[in-house]
Design a protein around this nucleic acid. Structure first.
Lengths: 251, 251
DNA sequence: GGCGCAAGTTGACTTTGATCAACTGGATGC
DNA sequence: GCATCCAGTTGATCAAAGTCAACTTGCGCC
């Protein structure tokens, strides 16, 4: 616990958390080096998850929050009938695991759609430390609120009357989220199957497929299997924001 | 600050928070009478809101969380096109205002659908007090998580392929939420317009109207304008949980 | 009372997406 | 190399929801 080692901790943390959603204010500002030592072993707990692997499953005991560092995680829940509802896709920089705090058991299942790495943050330890660092506590509130608001975008997307606008909104969202992480917002690989995407959007797989084709025909995107390239971002935005409206105009 | 007055505070709080979502563990357990005095002036801030009145609007500075004590509050957000998306209806015992924490400004608008009373909890003060009372802090995490999970039910409902199952799921949800507050789960008044409900469910008003009529024809509910009586709760549940399936069977 | 308005219902028709089915094109394995 | 398999695409048909329009009902107001 010498002062020197704490200085090293700071640098190490700043590096390791460069793309971390917790980063924004919990590290750069407000936290003294004495406190950083406390956060140290949490931030270090990086963990690889291979494609198809689970971060947690419905009913699992809740221990930790996860931050996606690379890859993509699908979150879904089982409906009473037995089939699944996809609740979201978490990309780098995004958090998951908030669903388990209330009941101390996860209400959803988190599966890696591709080989990914996540940062596991033991929840008990986090709240313990946060209790001693007001700035960190505030940041936790902010992060949770952000995730809460993010959840609300899902129904906004599903509320769209047309399959084309739902898909446009989804692609727009992925693009923006990538931009926020300084990844290429124009060209990217969709790691989810058409089936998962259809489920997420409240459509069937064939409709999603047709919507992709249509966007391509319109010259708005270029798509090859899961590889997507946004050719006309303006048109995509316009389409995403054209609630209902007359699609025949752009047919 | 005599000890007697604090004892009075306890009784008063227990009464005033009888239907409060914060109630469950923040008051009955874990909190000593010394701490109760701190919570006192927050819990007391009850406030009437008349029908059509706003708790907050999109863009408003975020100061407080609200707990509905009576009435009903509609939460909606403005889409880029200008029209609104209804994100939810908050009934007694439910919380709103979490959307404003992240950006310190509300991301949605909260409007009373009928004359209501809410308990306003200044957020800064709450977190201040929570920092001193670990049990309260834990409870806040739980409440937030619960609200997060609640948000996820909206897309689950909208993911249903048929209007009838969406409405059934909604009515089921209202019924259960009323039951949780020890209100009549069979008979109730829907305070939202068909327009708001349609928007919430991702349908148009005519489709909602027809779905109501159909549920009545099927003998599952009795409906007169906004007055609803659930006649066959089992059938309603069954319908609500029959993902897609063949509706012709029950036509 | 009756006029006018807003909310909701019902009907006729159109459009969209779901369904069913055939097909394509990579990737894997023998 | 070829067979197989799976994900995804495309086409034809059908049913459900959207659209447009007329109509009813309840309610406030003059």
């Amino acid at each position: 616990m010498a002062i020197d080692s704490q200085v090293i901790d700071i640098h190490e943390l700043r590096n390791s958390c460069a793309t971390c959603a917790l980063n924004e204010s919990c590290l750069p500002s407000a936290i003294g080096s004495r406190d950083l030592a406390l956060l140290d072993d949490m931030a270090k707990r990086r963990r690889p998850v291979e494609r198809g692997g689970f971060l947690f499953r419905e009913g699992d005991r809740h221990n930790a929050l996860f931050v996606v560092r690379s890859g993509a995680i699908k979150v879904s829940t089982t409906l009473s009938e037995g089939d699944a509802q996809v609740l979201g896709f978490h990309l780098p920089g995004e958090i998951l695991g908030l669903d388990g705090v209330a009941e101390e058991r996860h209400q959803a299942t988190a599966e890696a759609l591709e080989d990914s790495t996540v940062c596991e943050v033991p929840f008990a330890r986090l709240s313990q430390i946060a209790a001693q660092i007001p700035a960190l506590q505030r940041e936790i509130y902010r992060i949770v609120s952000r995730e809460y608001v993010r959840e609300q975008r899902h129904p906004v997307m599903m509320g769209r009357k047309h399959a084309l606008t739902r898909l446009a909104l989804f692609l727009h969202s992925v693009s923006e989220r990538r931009r926020a992480q300084e990844l290429d917002p124009q060209r990217f690989h969709l790691s989810m199957s058409r089936q998962d995407l259809a489920n997420y959007l409240g459509l069937v797989i064939e409709t999603v497929s047709r919507a992709f084709s249509r966007l391509q025909t319109l010259g708005i995107i270029d798509v090859d299997r899961r590889r997507v390239c946004i050719l006309d971002a303006d048109a995509l935005d316009q389409l995403a924001n054209s609630e209902g409206a007359d699609l025949r105009a752009i047919a």
